[in-house]
Amino acid sequence: MQATAFTFDPDTHAGSVLLDDGTPVPFDAAAFDAGGLRLLRPGQRVRIRTEGSGESLRVVFVTLQTFPDPAEGQD
């Protein structure tokens, strides 16, 4: 799934993304660190993986759109 980086705190590695419908979804340091990034700028297009739905939706993986998600293609 793709989204746009919305906020990012370089000290905590937490932030949020905007889904294509404008919904903000937060991510924590574990989701950021899983993507192998060092920095994220608001407005960057990102690839994300989520869990849950509705109010419990959360990002569990975030990386740049051009970087692969190692979980894609796995069953």
Score class of each variant (00 low, 15 high):
1 M>D: 08
2 Q>H: 14
2 Q>Y: 14
3 A>F: 03
3 A>W: 10
4 T>G: 03
4 T>R: 15
6 F>Y: 14
6 F>A: 12
7 T>L: 08
7 T>F: 00
9 D>F: 00
9 D>G: 03
11 D>I: 02
13 H>P: 00
14 A>Y: 00
15 G>V: 11
16 S>E: 13
16 S>G: 15
16 S>W: 02
17 V>Q: 10
17 V>C: 10
18 L>N: 12
18 L>Y: 12
19 L>E: 12
20 D>R: 12
21 D>Q: 07
21 D>K: 04
22 G>P: 05
22 G>Q: 08
23 T>V: 11
26 P>I: 07
28 D>L: 11
29 A>P: 03
30 A>F: 03
31 A>F: 07
31 A>T: 09
32 F>N: 09
34 A>W: 05
34 A>P: 03
34 A>L: 08
34 A>Q: 07
34 A>F: 09
35 G>M: 11
35 G>Y: 07
35 G>S: 10
36 G>D: 02
36 G>N: 04
38 R>C: 00
41 R>H: 08
42 P>M: 02
43 G>I: 10
45 R>C: 06
45 R>A: 14
47 R>P: 00
48 I>S: 04
48 I>A: 02
48 I>E: 02
49 R>S: 11
49 R>H: 04
50 T>P: 01
52 G>T: 06
52 G>Y: 04
53 S>N: 11
53 S>W: 12
53 S>K: 13
54 G>F: 08
55 E>W: 04
56 S>G: 01
56 S>P: 00
58 R>S: 13
59 V>C: 14
60 V>H: 05
60 V>S: 03
60 V>D: 03
60 V>N: 03
62 V>K: 04
63 T>Q: 02
63 T>D: 06
64 L>N: 10
64 L>M: 12
65 Q>L: 15
66 T>D: 15
66 T>K: 12
67 F>D: 14
67 F>P: 00
68 P>D: 13
69 D>Y: 06
73 G>V: 07
73 G>C: 09
73 G>H: 08
